[in-house]
Structures are given as structure tokens and as C-alpha cells.
Simulated assay, not measured.
Amino acid sequence: MADEYFMLVCDDVPHDVVLTDPGVRVMDVVQVVRRLTGLSLWRSKVLTTQSPTVILAGVPQEDAVAAVSALRDVGAQAGAREQPEPGFLKH
């Protein structure tokens, strides 16, 4: 019997939140990253300074849009993108 893979049809495709540039208010961005991720202050700062980086992975679209908005409000450049389709689903 051949292996078959099925993708469940969902209302919401998972999104990633990507921080591309923290801007000049780095510590404000670090605080937002800390609030969004639940990471320690030190880890949030490391994550922020390693941009471009994925801040949140696999979140619903509404959460991704809210996170991007919070990051942009403090001067960062960020965006949300749909997670790519798994390789085994591509034809």
C-alpha cells in the first residue's frame, strides 16, 4: 500500500512573524518581543539583535497581525508571512 498524506483543511493557515529591523528604539522592541514570546529579557535582546529573525512561528493570522502591529508601534520593521507548504504536499 502506498503512503498517502493528507492535509487538513483549516480556516487559518499558520503564520510567522518576522522582525527585519529593530530600528532605533531597540530596548522598546526588546520589551515587546519579551511580552510576545515570554522569553527572558536577555534572550529577547539577543533575538532582537539577530534580525532578520522569526519572532513567532505558526500562530493564527490575527495573532500575527497584532504582533506585527505591536512591533511597528515601537519603531521596528516587521512582517507576517504564511508558513510554507510542507515539501511532501508539493506536486
Rank of each mutant, 00 (worst) to 15 (best):
M1K: 11
M1N: 07
D3H: 13
D3W: 14
E4K: 15
E4Q: 13
Y5D: 04
Y5C: 00
F6S: 08
F6D: 02
F6R: 06
M7V: 10
L8R: 15
L8T: 14
C10Y: 01
D11F: 15
D12Y: 03
D12M: 06
P14I: 01
P14N: 01
H15N: 03
V17T: 14
V18L: 11
V18G: 07
L19C: 05
L19R: 11
L19N: 13
T20P: 03
D21H: 00
V24A: 11
V26G: 08
V26R: 05
V26F: 01
V26D: 02
D28V: 05
D28G: 15
Q31C: 08
Q31G: 06
Q31L: 15
Q31K: 10
V32L: 12
V32P: 01
V33C: 13
V33L: 00
V33P: 01
R34F: 04
L36R: 04
L36D: 12
T37F: 10
T37N: 11
T37I: 04
G38S: 04
L39A: 10
L39I: 02
S40G: 14
L41W: 08
W42Y: 14
W42D: 13
R43K: 15
R43Y: 05
K45A: 14
T49G: 12
T49S: 03
S51R: 10
S51Q: 12
S51I: 00
P52K: 06
T53V: 15
T53E: 09
V54S: 10
I55S: 12
L56P: 08
A57G: 11
G58D: 02
G58K: 02
V59S: 08
E62T: 15
D63F: 06
D63T: 13
A66N: 05
A66C: 01
S69D: 09
S69L: 14
A70T: 00
L71M: 09
R72G: 00
Q77N: 12
Q77M: 03
A78D: 12
A78Q: 02
G79R: 15
A80V: 03
A80T: 08
E82W: 08
E85S: 05
E85R: 08
E85W: 04
F88T: 05
L89C: 13
L89W: 03
K90E: 11
H91P: 07
H91F: 05
H91K: 07
H91I: 09
